[in-house]
């Protein structure tokens, strides 16, 4: 199945296995959950949530200086 993944304003399609969770995608993208928030279809969502085909994921990086 395919999901849409966006990070820092850049969006791409990601191919993943059925039953994959938000955490799986972050792992595959080598993103540390501690560095931001994960949103599913625009809403803050628990990382263990399973994805559905066509879902939109967004990782909001919160770790900035200043």
């Amino acid at each position: 199945m395919k999901v849409i993944f966006s990070l820092d304003g850049k969006t791409k399609e990601v191919e993943t296995k059925t039953g994959a969770t938000l955490a799986d995608i972050l792992k595959a993208e080598k993103i540390n959950l501690q560095t931001g928030l994960i949103k599913l279809n625009g809403k803050l969502t628990h990382p263990s949530t399973e994805l559905k085909d066509g879902d939109t994921l967004e990782f909001v990086n919160i770790i900035y200086g200043g």
């Binding site: 931001g36 928030l37 803050l44 909001v60 990086n61 919160i62 770790i63 900035y64 200086g65 200043g66």
Partner: peptide, 24 residues
């Protein structure tokens, strides 16, 4: 820091997220 971001998001508080151009 992450909990602060979550709190602001869940409480729907206005905040700005951007890296300072001079961060050194």
């Amino acid at each position: 820091e992450r909990e602060c971001a979550i709190y602001c998001t869940l409480r729907d508080l206005p905040f700005h997220l951007q890296e300072c151009p001079y961060s050194s």
